[in-house]
């Protein structure tokens, strides 16, 4: 928050914060009016004005300039605001990897990152991996080796797998398994996922 001097005391509700806010006083509302406003729909408008902060980030080479509540995770922002639903929610606790995206080239659990923390960053999601009609080699390899069943963990697996190859953690099956263990697949496609990664690595195409 930029105006740190206006930070509400711990225990204050958001509504109390609105009542006390110097910004509200600045637009010349008497306290009683402010309270009244807070009890009506005006509260919503205030909330939208003051609770959202500007955000600019690039997703799949497209620049988005929006405002967002600071408590919105990158995952929920991608899914609910940008409707890029290829990135999945599996636990919301950074425990399953279904929400894996690339942030400035690094694999990241998007549920553990707030959208506002990604100001100016370049995000790649599963929707941005293919080159037009041409699948990314990892996507093609996942199909070839049947690296999924229900498909829900798949976008996260693929984003993680691409990063795994780029990181150079593909020395052996065991190493791949270790570096892919942050992505849970309940259908149990693990051996096929490892096969797909080996194929991409050995294919030598740029990932």
């Amino acid at each position: 928050m930029k105006s740190s001097d206006q930070k509400p005391n711990q225990g204050d509700s958001r509504r109390d914060f609105l009542k006390k806010s110097s910004v509200i006083t600045a637009i010349a509302l008497t306290p009683s009016v402010a309270v009244k406003a807070a009890e009506s729909n005006a509260d919503e408008r205030f909330a939208q004005l003051f609770e959202k902060i500007p955000l600019e980030l690039t997703v799949n080479n497209k620049v988005y300039q929006t405002t967002v509540e600071p408590r919105v995770t990158l995952l929920d922002y991608l899914r609910e605001e940008l409707h890029l639903t290829g990135t999945k929610k599996g636990c919301d606790h950074g425990q399953c990897g279904a929400c894996t995206v690339h942030v400035d080239g690094q694999r990241v659990n998007s549920c553990l990152s707030l959208a506002v923390m990604n100001e100016g960053k370049k995000i790649t999601t599963i929707e941005g991996l293919a080159n037009g009609e041409t699948l990314h080699p990892m996507q093609a390899a996942f199909i070839k080796h049947d690296g999924f069943q229900c498909g829900y963990c798949t976008p996260g697996q693929i984003m993680s797998a691409v990063a795994c190859v780029r990181e150079g953690h593909t020395g052996s099956r065991a190493e791949i398994s270790e570096y892919m263990s942050g992505n849970i697949c309940r259908c149990g496609a693990y051996p096929n996922i490892v096969d797909a990664i080996i194929e991409v690595k050995e294919g030598g195409e740029k990932v």
Binding site: R79, L84, T85, G86, T87, K88, K89, T125, I126, E127, L129, A130, E133, L135, Q139, A140, F142, I143, K144, D146, F148, G151, Y152, T154, P155, I158
Partner: peptide, 28 residues
């Protein structure tokens, strides 16, 4: 996406949708 064709008859018919993030689950 419709233009993409599976390479092997035994590949999953919904494979392309699943690997590109286009398969829509209930919440989407």
């Amino acid at each position: 996406m419709e233009k993409r064709v599976l390479k092997d008859d035994n590949d999953r018919v919904d494979g392309i949708l699943k690997v590109t993030g286009q398969a829509k689950y209930f919440a989407e």
